[in-house]
Protein backbone atom coordinates (compact mmCIF):
# COMPACT_ATOMS: atom_id res chain seq x y z
CA UNK A 1 0.00 0.00 0.00
CA UNK A 2 1.52 3.28 -1.07
CA UNK A 3 -1.28 5.84 -0.80
CA UNK A 4 -4.44 6.21 1.25
CA UNK A 5 -6.87 8.06 -1.02
CA UNK A 6 -10.16 6.32 -0.41
CA UNK A 7 -11.50 3.61 1.87
CA UNK A 8 -12.18 1.68 -1.33
CA UNK A 9 -8.38 1.24 -1.60
CA UNK A 10 -8.48 -0.99 1.49
CA UNK A 11 -9.27 -4.66 1.89
CA UNK A 12 -10.93 -5.77 5.10
CA UNK A 13 -7.63 -7.31 6.24
CA UNK A 14 -5.76 -4.05 5.61
CA UNK A 15 -8.38 -1.98 7.40
CA UNK A 16 -8.33 -4.27 10.42
CA UNK A 17 -4.55 -4.24 10.44
CA UNK A 18 -4.59 -0.45 10.67
CA UNK A 19 -7.05 -0.63 13.57
CA UNK A 20 -4.99 -3.33 15.32
CA UNK A 21 -1.81 -1.33 14.85
CA UNK A 22 -3.58 1.73 16.26
CA UNK A 23 -4.59 -0.30 19.30
CA UNK A 24 -0.94 -1.10 20.02
CA UNK A 25 0.15 2.47 19.30
CA UNK A 26 -2.48 3.86 21.65
CA UNK A 27 -0.18 2.63 24.42
CA UNK A 28 2.43 5.13 23.33
CA UNK A 29 0.03 8.00 23.66
CA UNK A 30 -0.97 6.76 27.10
CA UNK A 31 2.56 6.10 28.33
CA UNK A 32 5.07 8.49 29.78
CA UNK A 33 7.18 8.48 26.64
CA UNK A 34 5.21 9.84 23.72
CA UNK A 35 7.77 9.20 21.04
CA UNK A 36 8.90 6.31 18.90
CA UNK A 37 11.92 6.39 16.58
CA UNK A 38 10.14 4.57 13.76
CA UNK A 39 9.98 7.32 11.12
CA UNK A 40 13.19 9.09 12.04
CA UNK A 41 14.60 10.83 8.96
CA UNK A 42 11.31 10.77 7.10
CA UNK A 43 9.74 14.02 5.93
CA UNK A 44 5.99 14.41 6.03
CA UNK A 45 4.34 17.48 4.55
CA UNK A 46 0.96 18.61 5.79
CA UNK A 47 -0.45 20.27 2.68
CA UNK A 48 -3.62 21.96 3.86
CA UNK A 49 -5.00 23.80 0.86
CA UNK A 50 -8.28 23.98 2.78
CA UNK A 51 -7.95 24.99 6.40
CA UNK A 52 -8.54 22.39 9.07
CA UNK A 53 -6.75 22.97 12.31
CA UNK A 54 -8.07 19.83 13.97
CA UNK A 55 -7.05 17.36 11.30
CA UNK A 56 -3.73 19.06 10.73
CA UNK A 57 -2.65 18.99 14.37
CA UNK A 58 -3.82 15.39 14.67
CA UNK A 59 -1.63 14.33 11.75
CA UNK A 60 1.16 16.52 13.05
CA UNK A 61 1.04 14.90 16.49
CA UNK A 62 0.95 11.45 14.91
CA UNK A 63 3.95 12.16 12.71
CA UNK A 64 5.95 13.67 15.55
CA UNK A 65 5.27 10.78 17.89
CA UNK A 66 6.85 8.59 15.24
CA UNK A 67 9.84 10.99 15.04
CA UNK A 68 9.16 12.12 11.47
CA UNK A 69 10.09 15.63 10.37
CA UNK A 70 6.92 17.60 9.74
CA UNK A 71 6.53 20.54 7.39
CA UNK A 72 3.27 22.44 7.49
CA UNK A 73 2.17 24.02 4.25
CA UNK A 74 -1.13 25.82 4.65
CA UNK A 75 -3.13 27.89 2.25
CA UNK A 76 -3.14 31.08 4.27
CA UNK A 77 -0.25 33.34 3.49
CA UNK A 78 1.48 30.79 1.26
CA UNK A 79 1.98 30.53 -2.47
CA UNK A 80 -1.21 28.47 -2.55
CA UNK A 81 -3.26 31.53 -1.81
CA UNK A 82 -1.43 33.31 -4.58
CA UNK A 83 -2.83 31.00 -7.22
CA UNK A 84 -0.04 28.48 -7.45
CA UNK A 85 -1.25 25.34 -9.19
CA UNK A 86 -1.41 21.96 -7.51
CA UNK A 87 1.16 20.76 -10.02
CA UNK A 88 3.70 23.43 -9.09
CA UNK A 89 3.13 22.82 -5.39
CA UNK A 90 3.69 19.11 -5.91
CA UNK A 91 6.89 19.72 -7.86
CA UNK A 92 8.11 21.89 -5.00
CA UNK A 93 7.34 19.20 -2.43
CA UNK A 94 9.12 16.63 -4.57
CA UNK A 95 12.16 18.88 -4.76
CA UNK A 96 12.13 19.19 -0.95
CA UNK A 97 12.21 15.41 -0.67
CA UNK A 98 8.83 14.80 0.92
CA UNK A 99 8.32 11.13 1.70
CA UNK A 100 4.61 11.67 2.22
CA UNK A 101 2.07 14.40 1.68
CA UNK A 102 -0.97 14.63 3.90
CA UNK A 103 -3.35 16.65 1.79
CA UNK A 104 -6.57 18.45 2.68
CA UNK A 105 -8.17 20.04 -0.35
CA UNK A 106 -11.49 21.62 -1.22
CA UNK A 107 -11.67 19.83 -4.56
CA UNK A 108 -12.87 16.23 -4.67
CA UNK A 109 -10.20 14.00 -6.18
CA UNK A 110 -7.26 16.35 -5.65
CA UNK A 111 -5.31 13.71 -3.63
CA UNK A 112 -5.85 11.17 -6.39
CA UNK A 113 -4.59 13.68 -8.94
CA UNK A 114 -1.42 14.04 -6.88
CA UNK A 115 -1.00 10.29 -6.51
CA UNK A 116 -1.64 9.46 -10.17
CA UNK A 117 0.51 12.24 -11.58
CA UNK A 118 4.23 12.06 -12.06
CA UNK A 119 4.58 15.37 -10.24
CA UNK A 120 5.84 13.71 -7.05
CA UNK A 121 6.88 10.26 -5.89
CA UNK A 122 5.97 10.17 -2.20
CA UNK A 123 2.95 8.64 -0.53
CA UNK A 124 -0.27 10.62 -0.64
CA UNK A 125 -2.62 10.54 2.32
CA UNK A 126 -6.08 12.00 1.85
CA UNK A 127 -6.96 14.16 4.85
CA UNK A 128 -10.31 15.13 3.35
CA UNK A 129 -11.03 16.10 -0.26
CA UNK A 130 -14.02 18.22 -1.16
CA UNK A 131 -17.21 16.23 -0.79
CA UNK A 132 -15.48 12.97 -1.62
CA UNK A 133 -13.76 11.16 1.25
CA UNK A 134 -12.01 11.49 4.58
CA UNK A 135 -10.57 8.02 5.15
CA UNK A 136 -8.56 8.71 8.31
CA UNK A 137 -11.71 10.05 9.98
CA UNK A 138 -13.61 6.89 9.05
CA UNK A 139 -10.80 4.72 10.43
CA UNK A 140 -10.75 6.59 13.74
CA UNK A 141 -14.54 6.35 13.90
CA UNK A 142 -14.39 2.59 13.31
CA UNK A 143 -11.66 2.34 15.94
CA UNK A 144 -13.86 4.18 18.43
CA UNK A 145 -16.93 2.11 17.60
CA UNK A 146 -14.96 -1.11 17.96
CA UNK A 147 -13.79 -0.10 21.41
CA UNK A 148 -17.29 0.65 22.62
CA UNK A 149 -19.65 -1.64 20.77
CA UNK A 150 -17.80 -4.88 20.02
CA UNK A 151 -17.29 -7.68 22.48
CA UNK A 152 -15.00 -10.34 21.07
CA UNK A 153 -14.34 -10.39 17.35
CA UNK A 154 -12.28 -7.73 15.70
CA UNK A 155 -14.64 -6.46 13.00
CA UNK A 156 -17.95 -4.62 13.33
CA UNK A 157 -20.38 -7.38 12.39
CA UNK A 158 -23.73 -6.79 14.04
CA UNK A 159 -23.11 -3.15 14.94
CA UNK A 160 -25.91 -0.82 13.82
CA UNK A 161 -24.91 2.73 12.91
CA UNK A 162 -27.05 5.72 11.96
CA UNK A 163 -25.31 8.57 10.12
CA UNK A 164 -27.43 11.68 10.41
CA UNK A 165 -27.35 14.93 8.47
CA UNK A 166 -25.88 16.38 5.29
CA UNK A 167 -24.89 13.18 3.49
CA UNK A 168 -24.79 14.93 0.11
CA UNK A 169 -21.82 17.12 0.96
CA UNK A 170 -20.15 14.89 3.55
CA UNK A 171 -16.80 13.26 2.91
CA UNK A 172 -17.01 11.77 6.40
CA UNK A 173 -20.25 10.01 5.48
CA UNK A 174 -18.85 8.61 2.22
CA UNK A 175 -15.76 7.13 3.88
CA UNK A 176 -17.77 5.82 6.81
CA UNK A 177 -20.34 4.11 4.60
CA UNK A 178 -17.56 2.29 2.76
CA UNK A 179 -15.59 1.32 5.86
CA UNK A 180 -18.51 0.36 8.09
CA UNK A 181 -19.85 -1.79 5.29
CA UNK A 182 -16.43 -3.35 4.74
CA UNK A 183 -16.21 -4.22 8.44
CA UNK A 184 -19.69 -5.73 8.55
CA UNK A 185 -21.71 -3.04 10.32
CA UNK A 186 -25.18 -2.13 9.08
CA UNK A 187 -25.64 1.53 8.22
CA UNK A 188 -28.73 3.71 8.05
CA UNK A 189 -28.47 7.17 6.54
CA UNK A 190 -30.87 9.67 8.06
CA UNK A 191 -31.32 12.97 6.24
CA UNK A 192 -33.83 15.20 4.53
CA UNK A 193 -34.23 14.02 0.90
CA UNK A 194 -32.53 17.21 -0.32
CA UNK A 195 -29.31 16.24 1.44
CA UNK A 196 -29.01 12.73 0.02
CA UNK A 197 -27.17 12.36 -3.30
CA UNK A 198 -28.93 11.13 -6.41
CA UNK A 199 -27.46 7.65 -6.82
CA UNK A 200 -27.49 6.85 -3.08
CA UNK A 201 -29.78 3.93 -3.94
CA UNK A 202 -26.73 1.98 -5.04
CA UNK A 203 -24.99 2.37 -1.66
CA UNK A 204 -25.00 -0.55 0.79
CA UNK A 205 -27.18 1.31 3.31
CA UNK A 206 -30.73 1.80 4.46
CA UNK A 207 -32.24 5.25 4.00
CA UNK A 208 -34.57 7.03 6.38
CA UNK A 209 -36.04 10.52 6.49
CA UNK A 210 -37.18 10.07 10.08
CA UNK A 211 -34.63 10.25 12.89
CA UNK A 212 -37.17 9.35 15.57
CA UNK A 213 -37.92 6.02 13.89
CA UNK A 214 -34.25 5.09 13.72
CA UNK A 215 -32.75 6.38 16.92
CA UNK A 216 -34.00 3.69 19.28
CA UNK A 217 -32.66 0.79 17.24
CA UNK A 218 -29.01 1.65 16.65
CA UNK A 219 -25.80 1.27 18.64
CA UNK A 220 -24.15 4.37 17.23
CA UNK A 221 -25.57 7.74 16.25
CA UNK A 222 -23.07 9.65 14.16
CA UNK A 223 -24.05 13.28 13.70
CA UNK A 224 -22.69 15.30 10.77
CA UNK A 225 -21.92 18.97 10.78
CA UNK A 226 -24.31 21.26 8.91
CA UNK A 227 -22.19 23.71 6.95
CA UNK A 228 -23.11 27.32 7.27
CA UNK A 229 -23.21 27.79 3.49
CA UNK A 230 -26.04 25.23 3.10
CA UNK A 231 -28.40 27.40 5.11
CA UNK A 232 -29.40 29.63 2.24
CA UNK A 233 -29.24 27.10 -0.55
CA UNK A 234 -32.77 25.66 -0.50
CA UNK A 235 -31.83 22.39 1.20
CA UNK A 236 -34.12 23.08 4.14
CA UNK A 237 -36.30 26.03 5.14
CA UNK A 238 -34.18 27.24 8.05
CA UNK A 239 -31.90 26.12 10.85
CA UNK A 240 -34.74 25.84 13.34
CA UNK A 241 -36.69 23.39 11.21
CA UNK A 242 -33.58 21.36 10.45
CA UNK A 243 -32.78 21.16 14.13
CA UNK A 244 -36.33 20.12 14.99
CA UNK A 245 -36.31 17.12 12.63
CA UNK A 246 -32.65 16.12 12.40
CA UNK A 247 -30.98 17.56 15.49
CA UNK A 248 -29.93 15.31 18.36
CA UNK A 249 -31.48 16.86 21.46
CA UNK A 250 -32.08 15.67 25.00
CA UNK A 251 -35.48 14.16 24.13
CA UNK A 252 -34.01 12.04 21.38
CA UNK A 253 -31.05 11.12 23.61
CA UNK A 254 -33.55 9.44 25.97
CA UNK A 255 -34.86 7.32 23.08
CA UNK A 256 -31.43 5.86 22.42
CA UNK A 257 -30.86 2.25 23.33
CA UNK A 258 -28.85 1.02 26.27
CA UNK A 259 -25.04 1.32 25.77
CA UNK A 260 -25.38 3.21 22.51
CA UNK A 261 -23.00 6.07 21.78
CA UNK A 262 -23.08 9.50 20.14
CA UNK A 263 -20.34 10.52 17.71
CA UNK A 264 -19.51 13.69 15.81
CA UNK A 265 -16.47 14.36 13.60
CA UNK A 266 -16.31 17.97 14.76
CA UNK A 267 -16.35 20.84 14.76
CA UNK A 268 -19.84 20.84 16.22
CA UNK A 269 -22.59 23.38 15.79
CA UNK A 270 -23.97 23.15 19.29
CA UNK A 271 -27.68 23.85 19.25
CA UNK A 272 -28.05 23.04 15.57
CA UNK A 273 -27.31 19.39 14.76
CA UNK A 274 -26.44 18.51 18.35
CA UNK A 275 -27.64 19.96 21.64
CA UNK A 276 -25.01 20.95 24.19
CA UNK A 277 -26.35 18.53 26.81
CA UNK A 278 -26.02 15.69 24.29
CA UNK A 279 -22.50 16.62 23.30
CA UNK A 280 -21.49 16.66 26.96
CA UNK A 281 -23.49 13.59 27.98
CA UNK A 282 -22.12 10.24 29.08
CA UNK A 283 -23.09 8.71 25.74
CA UNK A 284 -20.90 11.15 23.87
CA UNK A 285 -17.52 9.83 22.76
CA UNK A 286 -16.69 12.94 20.79
CA UNK A 287 -13.61 13.91 22.80
CA UNK A 288 -12.38 10.33 22.70
CA UNK A 289 -12.66 10.39 18.89
CA UNK A 290 -10.08 13.16 18.87
CA UNK A 291 -7.67 11.17 21.06
CA UNK A 292 -8.15 8.05 18.95
CA UNK A 293 -7.46 10.14 15.87
CA UNK A 294 -3.79 10.45 16.78
CA UNK A 295 -3.32 6.70 17.29
CA UNK A 296 -5.12 5.83 14.08
CA UNK A 297 -3.13 8.39 12.09
CA UNK A 298 0.09 7.01 13.60
CA UNK A 299 -1.02 3.58 12.37
CA UNK A 300 -1.70 4.97 8.88
CA UNK A 301 1.71 6.60 8.73
CA UNK A 302 3.34 3.45 10.04
CA UNK A 303 1.65 1.20 7.47
CA UNK A 304 2.40 3.52 4.56
CA UNK A 305 5.88 4.72 5.48
CA UNK A 306 7.70 2.42 7.86
CA UNK A 307 8.38 -0.42 5.47
CA UNK A 308 10.63 -0.43 2.47
CA UNK A 309 9.54 -1.39 -1.01
CA UNK A 310 7.93 -4.80 -1.33
CA UNK A 311 10.70 -6.14 -3.57
CA UNK A 312 13.18 -5.60 -0.74
CA UNK A 313 11.39 -8.24 1.27
CA UNK A 314 14.12 -10.87 1.54
CA UNK A 315 15.32 -11.94 4.92
Amino acid sequence: MRHLLSISDLTKVQALSILDTATELARVSDGAVKKLPTLRGRTIVNLFVEDSTRTRISFEAAAKRLSADVINFSAKGSSLSKGESLKDTALTLQAMGADAVVIRHGASGAPQRLADSDWMRGSVINAGDGTHEHPSQALLDAFTIRKHCVKGGNDLVGVRVAIVGDILHSRVARSNVLLLNLLGASVTLVAPPTLLPVGVESWPVKISYDLDKVIGSVDVVMMLRVQQERMNDLFFPNAREYSRYFGLNADRLRLMSHNSIVMHPGPMNRGLEIAAEVADSARSVIVEQVANGVSVRMAILYVLLAGGPLEAGVK
Binding site: T131, V198, G199
Partner: peptide, 15 residues
Protein backbone atom coordinates in the same frame (compact mmCIF):
# COMPACT_ATOMS: atom_id res chain seq x y z
CA UNK B 1 -23.35 13.46 -14.82
CA UNK B 2 -25.56 13.20 -11.76
CA UNK B 3 -25.93 9.56 -10.80
CA UNK B 4 -24.26 6.68 -9.04
CA UNK B 5 -20.75 7.73 -9.98
CA UNK B 6 -21.11 11.38 -8.97
CA UNK B 7 -22.58 10.23 -5.66
CA UNK B 8 -19.47 8.20 -4.93
CA UNK B 9 -16.94 10.71 -6.23
CA UNK B 10 -18.49 13.67 -4.46
CA UNK B 11 -18.56 15.74 -7.63
CA UNK B 12 -21.53 18.04 -8.13
CA UNK B 13 -24.11 16.36 -10.35
CA UNK B 14 -25.35 17.53 -13.75
CA UNK B 15 -28.78 16.04 -14.14
Amino acid sequence: NEGEVSAILGLKGWP
